[in-house]
Design a protein around this nucleic acid. Sequence first.
DNA 1: AAATAAAATGAGTATATACCCATAGTATGA
DNA 2: TCATACTATGGGTATATACTCATTTTATTT
Lengths: 141, 141
Amino acid sequence: MIANELCNCNILRNSSSKITSIYDKALSHTGVKVTQYGLLKYVYLLKSPNLSQLSAALYQDRSTLGRNIRILERMKLVSINAGIDKRQVQIELTNYGVFTLKEARKAWELVQKKIELKLGKKKQEQLIEILKNIEAIELKL
Amino acid sequence: MIANELCNCNILRNSSSKITSIYDKALSHTGVKVTQYGLLKYVYLLKSPNLSQLSAALYQDRSTLGRNIRILERMKLVSINAGIDKRQVQIELTNYGVFTLKEARKAWELVQKKIELKLGKKKQEQLIEILKNIEAIELKL
DNA sequence: AAATAAAATGAGTATATACCCATAGTATGA
DNA sequence: TCATACTATGGGTATATACTCATTTTATTT
């Protein structure tokens, strides 16, 4: 009665997990994981944002972001300071954070290219297109 | 110097997260999340497996499985008993677990169909194909 | 049979994630 | 200006996940 059809959700979860571990291994010598690289990148791109700005840019929960950022702080990659508005925290890359971001960027470029080669340009583009579709889905539930 | 190109890994992570929350909402009235539904389904399909069998079927870490199964045990959805080989634990669905699995299955079918409609058959198939490619990737790192 | 190897699991530790609620600070409207 | 509403964040709690190491049991090899 219950068969084992492919679940869109679980195949995506599995692929996501698999590719995350590939990227993590490719970045491992830099000391950061691909998720942390993403965070550092946005702190850089948004030029010392506060948590709400970061979480809006990353479409992630603020408290999640807060926790993840505090890990980067422990790792001396970012500093967290009170903003002029004292409710806010201003997040800045440390020098070590900038250095690490650049190293991670090099490693990221390599693994990204390798994946693109393995997958081929056409499938790569199809994937992006389909995932955009998925992220745009709003089901009435 | 550091631009914001699309990262295969992060777009997959985001899509995975997004679609997980869609499935979770669709299943919410059954009391289980889509990941837990997947676990229940495999306990059913594998007919009271032990942890190693489950983790092999799901390509997941054994200790992860152990923790997730103990959550299902707390929820009275499965029972965990010692096997004949006393190292093993035998995992069985309770009656409530079977009932919940069936309810979750109905909800899963609905949301799965809705997603397929939104996405279209062609993209659906492309997605599966591409994700299989990704899961098969073995980079020498 | 005794020693050793292998298998199954659990526990410790850690990250990533989200939800809800409390609190502190700021802005706004009467 | 004072009460109220809004904003930014932190903390509690919970799930999902993986890695490493210890322990218990079983299997294998002298």
